[in-house]
Every structure is written in structure tokens, then in C-alpha cells.
Design a protein around this nucleic acid. Structure first.
Lengths: 140, 140
DNA sequence: TTGATTACTTGATCGAATCAAGGATTATCG
DNA sequence: CGATAATCCTTGATTCGATCAAGTAATCAA
């Protein structure tokens, strides 16, 4: 099950459309990751490493437990996509950074995850601005 | 990590807004489920049982393996939210249906998952129609 | 310096997802 | 009719994500 957020009830057309978008987005993300033999979580963490980051920073960004990040980074490290070095400024911390291969895989993921790009691309520039404004307003 | 679909790169404002919506939606769904001690997958399956359904139908709807559904339904059954009876018309199949308690929990989930309702509610009726149209067009 | 806090790891447990394999039932076709 | 195939679901094994409790090491603060 890609991401099982099928709606219980969608009382309005807009809610239904919103749900469909979320559903298709999530599935596309997962498919793109799977195409590179990555889990969504791995692709996600890899994508957050444009700049080297501490484990805690990653955990906070993703809203999860630090031990979760330890797990995921350990796997990315085993895949040779990431390094984990002691932080020279605070030796409790560990700085995670992509390897060249990690960069390459991440670039490929960005290329392969065409869904959002394609979806937005179906709209005219004016429509894109409208969509942005509506989504931002809906997000409150 | 709620649903870790943080973007690798968001080349446009619209893509970024789309991502944010997906991210917040997924998290809200998970929180609503957790509030009822359900996993997102369990809440999802429960929500699909307005009408009794076979295991295979559920698997197809959710795009996952049948054995995955077996697992989830087994847990829902253990929670007393669902029954699994032999299909009288084809004794290979099993029909899954919500119990009264399953209905109650499902209703409560629908109430608790306020995110989509609230998001859409921040828009005027005309804006809701716009959003619907834009999302549908973006979905292709 | 002592004690608390911070940053991360480890180990355990649970659930979701997927795959291979198997049992039971139904459908097909010679 | 009867053998074979296809369908529906389950079981078992494995992997990964998520969370919690507990622990280590380093830093900070009194």
C-alpha cells in the first residue's frame, strides 16, 4: 500500500480533489524512490542533505525520533550514499553528508520524481500562481 | 516520521505549495488515526468498509498485496472493529464488514480528521471550485 | 567539580509492505 | 465428467519505518 490515505468521506468536491492529489503524489514519490532501490524515507533524508546536517537537525525537520534517523542514516551509509563524521565543533554530534554517489542518486531521484513537475506543468503560469495562492490560503 | 515526503527540490512555488499541502495532509491523517489508537492503514481500511467488501477488492483499491490486507484486517478484527465472514456466493472469498463499534470508530475518525474540511473551509465557495478545477487539471 | 542537559546510539517491539508458497474453492476445457 | 488451471486468501519469512526506554559520551552550568 503506497500511502494508504484514502479518505473516509469526502464531503465536498474540493476535499475529494485534495485527497486525490495527495494520494497520487505519495504514490509517485514512492515509485520514484523504489526505482532507485530506496525507501521513501531514505530518499527523503538523502534529499535533505544538500548541506551537511546533524542527526538531530534531520530528526527535527522530519518530525521524528532521533533513533529513527540513526536507523535510516545507517542504511544510507551502508549503501555508500552518505557519510557520518564527528562534528569537530561538538563532539557529541555527528554531521551527515552525501557522498558523490549520494549526490548522483539524489539528482537522479529529483529527475525521476516527475509528478509534481508534470502536474504543475499542466497549468499555465497564471494558473500556477492561482493554485499556489489557493493552497497557501487553505493551509491557513 | 509522519510521512516523509519532504521534497528534494521544489523548483517552483506551486510545487512547493503542493508539497506542503501533501505533507500537512498526511501528518493530519496520521494524527487523527493515532488519536483513536489506529494506524493510518487501519483507519484507511476501516473507512473503505461502508459496504462489505472482499479482501481482494480492498487490496486492489489500496494497490497493495492481498497478504497485506490479511494482516490489517486481522488486527482490526482483533480490535472488534470488523468481521470477516465467508462469502456465501464464493466460498474462497471472505467478506469484511464493520461492526457497530467499527462504525462508531470510523465516524469518530471522520469527525476528528478535520484537516481537509478546515483547509477547504478557509476558501470561499468560488475559490473551492477554482481549487478543484486546478487540482483536477494538474492531475491530468 | 558536580550535576544536568544535549546528541546520538542501542535494543526491543510493533506495524506495514512484499514475496514465496500453499490450501481451498471455483472455472475451464478436453 | 474429470483433470488442470485460475482465483481467493492465508501463512511464514524478511525488510524497513516508527517509537520507546535506556544508555554512553560530551558539553554546559552552578
Amino acid at each position: 500500500m503506497a500511502v494508504p490515505n484514502k479518505p473516509v468521506t469526502t464531503s465536498s468536491e474540493a476535499e475529494a480533489a485534495l485527497f486525490d492529489m495527495v494520494d497520487v503524489y505519495d504514490r509517485a514519490y514512492e515509485v520514484a524512490a523504489a526505482g532507485l532501490s530506496l525507501s521513501p524515507a531514505q530518499a527523503c533524508v538523502l534529499g535533505r542533505l544538500g548541506e551537511r546536517r546533524g542527526m538531530g537537525a534531520l530528526a527535527e525537520e522530519l518530525g521524528c525520533d532521533a533513533s529513527n534517523i540513526t536507523q535510516i542514516v545507517t542504511r544510507l551509509e551502508a549503501l555508500g550514499l552518505v557519510t557520518r563524521e564527528p562534528d569537530p565543533r561538538d563532539r557529541r554530534g555527528r554531521l551527515v553528508a552525501r557522498t558523490p554517489r549520494g549526490d548522483e542518486i539524489n539528482d537522479r531521484f529529483a529527475t525521476d520524481f516527475t509528478f509534481a513537475r508534470a502536474a504543475v506543468g499542466r497549468l499555465s503560469p497564471a494558473e500556477q500562481d492561482q493554485l499556489t495562492a489557493l493552497l497557501r490560503k487553505a493551509l491557513g
